[in-house]
Design a binder for these strands. Structure first.
Lengths: 130, 130
DNA sequence: ATGACTGCAAAGACTTTGCATCTTT
DNA sequence: AAAGATGCAAAGTCTTTGCAGTCAT
């Protein structure tokens, strides 16, 4: 069953050591120098595995690509729906309360809060894109 | 420039008349009976157009597909990261406050709040998926 | 040895694009 | 007639899968 894998370990560490919320491709790019034979399919497979094992979390698809997060503590993000930029926001008590009350209301087990909108750079341009 | 299009109008009305948050494919399925020649590419093109025009809003990719929302008022969703199920939650004052304060903190123009987690059906099974 | 893990290439799923044709103005 | 909108098919992205070879136990 569970078996050690240098690749998987590297992927997990890569994810834990960055503050950005990377995609499979970004992780591959990071690890390629040290693991020249590493393959994108392997990255995907291990990300799925790590996610299923609860060691990482997926942020879902953002701007067409799945983003992952090495921080599995409940926390919050702000995401630009235009360019995909992601910012962390501190997990205030009001957010925690919100997550809890929404969970009670809906029966969901709320794990993360993603506020979406337009980042400063997109806010001006995208509103009237053209 | 802007020109009337029966297809675009139908897509917009379809989106406004449903409470689910559909994908391009779902919209096509709905409209096919009345618009037999309607094409998926046309649906996509018009969704992009309507989104750029600010008449609809994208919820981003959920479970691999982009979902759209005919309700452009700021509001909140709960999304299951396992099966993609979407639930609306009433826009309470605490959520509004949260969105505003996050906006101030990050400089983003916050438009929606998406709480993610596991729905009741996935909560039991997915946690220990296997 | 055995079964998990990997690399590679092929296949999938959803979305976008090119182009000739049809519509709206 | 002119410019936008559409249908169809081809091309693009990102992701998953099949398979034979490799590695950890």
């Amino acid at each position: 069953m569970e078996r050690y894998s240098k690749n998987r370990q590297a992927i997990l560490e890569c994810l834990r050591s960055t503050k950005i919320h990377p995609t499979a491709g970004w992780i591959l790019d990071q690890l390629r120098p040290a693991y020249p034979s590493l393959n994108l399919a392997t990255v995907y497979r291990n990300l799925i595995r790590l996610k299923d094992d609860g060691l990482i979390r997926s942020m879902g698809d953002i701007a067409g690509e799945e983003h992952f997060d090495g921080d599995i503590q409940p926390h919050a993000h702000v995401i630009c729906t235009c360019c995909g930029k992601i910012a962390d926001i501190p997990l205030t008590e009001s957010i925690i309360n919100l997550m809890e009350s929404a969970g009670r209301q809906t029966g969901f087990e709320i794990l993360a809060s993603q506020l979406t909108g337009l980042c400063p750079s997109c806010s001006g341009s995208e509103n009237r894109k053209e």
